Simulated assay, not measured.
Amino acid sequence: MKRYGVATRIRTELYRRFISIVRWYYNHFWGTHIGEGTRISLTAKIDKTFPDGIRIGKYSAVTFRTSIMTHDFVNNVHLPTTIGDYCFIGAHAVIMPGVTIGDHCIIGAGSVVLRDVPAHSLAFGNPARVIERNIQTGLYGARIRDGAPAETAPAAQSAADQADTMPAHA
């Protein structure tokens, strides 16, 4: 197990708490459905035209300047966009409306995802294409190679994470 300095551990804990507040904000004020432990960059663009259509599973990572769309004004449609559990969405990726990305997927940086991506897949490009199947990912979409130990979800939830699991008031 790696040992980090006190400053690094404090910074990491503050970041986790802050990101859980961001997730809580999106879920409670905008009506998105973002799972426990999911990390979303502050520069990621979450479509607020149809926020109820944003569904992101648990322990996924949405990196900087990613756009997750739920509306298509050209065709006048609003479609739910779903990202599974334990996924990694690379920087500057664009996830188009109506797309479903399965559990344990990795989407490469700069990819434009126009079609569904099956679970346990690695996809990238413009348009994004599945280039590898049957991959396994752990926390935040980190790839697990054969024989490598998987990082597990944190055992204890912070107060902000517990607030995410409480039912929303109507």
Rank of each mutant, 00 (worst) to 15 (best):
G57P: 10
T63Y: 06
Y140R: 11
V62K: 06
F64A: 13
P80Y: 11
A109F: 04
H120I: 10
H78S: 13
I95N: 00
D85E: 13
G98K: 02
E132H: 13
A153M: 14
M96C: 09
D72S: 15
D52A: 04
P149W: 07
Y59V: 13
I131R: 05
A109D: 12
P97G: 03
D85R: 10
G98W: 08
L122D: 02
I68Q: 06
T63G: 03
S121H: 11
I144G: 06
V130N: 01
G110F: 05
T70W: 04
D85I: 02
G141N: 03
T82F: 04
T152I: 13
G84N: 09
S121A: 11
I95M: 06
G147Y: 05
R65W: 02
P127I: 08
C87L: 11
P118D: 03
G53L: 10
A123R: 05
R129Y: 07
A123N: 00
G98A: 09
I144E: 14
S67D: 11
G90Y: 01
A142L: 12
M96D: 00
S121F: 07
A123I: 05
D85W: 02
H104F: 04
E151Q: 15
E151T: 15
L139W: 11
T63C: 08
P97N: 01
I107M: 13
F88L: 10
I68W: 01
R55P: 01
V99C: 05
A93P: 00
K58F: 04
R55L: 15
G108R: 05
N126R: 13
L114K: 12
A128H: 00
S67Y: 03
F73D: 12
G110Q: 05
G98T: 02
M96A: 06
I131T: 12
P80K: 11
P118F: 12
A109Y: 05
G108A: 13
L122A: 10
V99F: 00
I101V: 01
Q136C: 07
R133S: 11
D116I: 09
V77G: 09
V112M: 02
T63M: 12
L114F: 13
V117C: 01
I83R: 00
I101S: 11
H92E: 08
T49P: 03
T66R: 03
L79C: 09
I135E: 06
I83Y: 02
Y140K: 07
G141T: 04
F50N: 06
T63A: 09
I83T: 06
A128W: 01
A148S: 15
V94E: 13
D146G: 01
T66M: 15
S121C: 08
I107Q: 02
T152G: 08
S111Q: 10
G108N: 01
G110D: 00
D103A: 02
I106C: 05
A142V: 15
T49M: 08
R133T: 11
T82Q: 09
A148G: 04
H104A: 15
V117F: 03
D85F: 05
H71T: 14
A109V: 12
R145K: 07
A148R: 06
K58C: 12
L122Y: 14
